[in-house]
């Protein structure tokens, strides 16, 4: 199987969007372009919001073809890496199911194979998940109610980077915060293979009341175009890059 690149948006939020485009529609737009949207809803014991904001969390993940999970703040680190890995497996399985259907005809999926054969398919899924390149654009909600959860979010993201860097494939991360200082969405870290030294990024945040989730997803979709462009440039001609103006 050809080594491909998996594209994911990881949205970490604690409530409802209240500004800009409909985030569920934006997630569908992402899916159209081969980007999976995963959502993690973060709660702590003081949260009274309950079911209201969380319905949206599920809706975004559903239309984005990804996974949603609602967690207590302290479980965040393990959830972030689990959701990311599960979503990868799901995407790969989706591709394999598609190919199986082309070969075997209607309705045949990995789940319909006898256990022995399924074991072999799962091994391939594992192999692809381990070696595929992964691009994750992380969107962190920094609205007022998220403020005391941000240290944990920061830790969880460092942990995610640690987990994913143990894979054989290449990783690229970028980090957006919303709402930003002047714009609705602020890019704080451009595409990079490792998410370390993100402590300072979170220190400068000023919290606003608005939550422009939709615009944030839209910005994230745009960012994937920039990495595709960059990759093509590197692959095309390495020497041209070296000879370029400094």
């Amino acid at each position: 199987m050809k080594k491909g690149t998996l594209k994911q948006i990881l949205l970490i939020t604690d409530g409802c969007s209240n500004e800009g485009e409909d985030p569920v529609a934006m997630a569908a737009l992402a899916r159209e372009q081969g980007i999976t949207v995963n959502v993690i809803g973060v709660l702590d014991q003081y949260d009274s919001e309950g079911g209201h904001g969380l319905q949206e969390v599920e809706g975004i993940a559903q239309s984005g073809g990804g996974i949603s999970q609602i967690v207590q703040t302290r479980q965040l680190a393990q959830t972030v890496q689990m959701v990311t890995k599960q979503a990868m497996t799901q995407t790969i399985k989706g591709v394999i199911n598609q190919q199986l259907q082309d070969i075997l005809g209607d309705g045949e999926t990995v789940e319909d194979l006898p256990p022995e054969k399924r074991g072999k398919v799962m091994e391939v899924v594992d192999e692809v998940g381990e070696t595929a390149d992964l691009n994750v654009c992380i969107l962190v909600d920094t609205s007022a109610s998220m403020k005391n959860k941000l240290p944990t979010v920061r830790e969880a993201l460092t942990d995610l980077s640690l987990s994913l860097s143990a894979r054989m494939g290449e990783n690229q991360f970028c980090l957006f915060l919303f709402p930003g200082k002047r714009k609705p969405v602020q890019k704080v870290i451009a595409w990079t293979p490792q998410l370390d030294s993100i402590e300072r990024v979170f220190e400068k945040i000023s919290s606003h009341g608005v939550t422009p989730t939709g615009p944030a997803i839209k910005e994230a979709i745009k960012s994937f175009a920039s990495i595709a462009h960059k990759r093509a440039f590197y692959d095309g001609d390495d020497e041209a890059y070296d000879d370029g103006p400094r």
Partner: peptide
């Protein structure tokens, strides 16, 4: 079932 299958494997 995927995690079960890899364990069984």
């Amino acid at each position: 079932r995927s995690s079960l299958i890899s364990e069984a494997h």
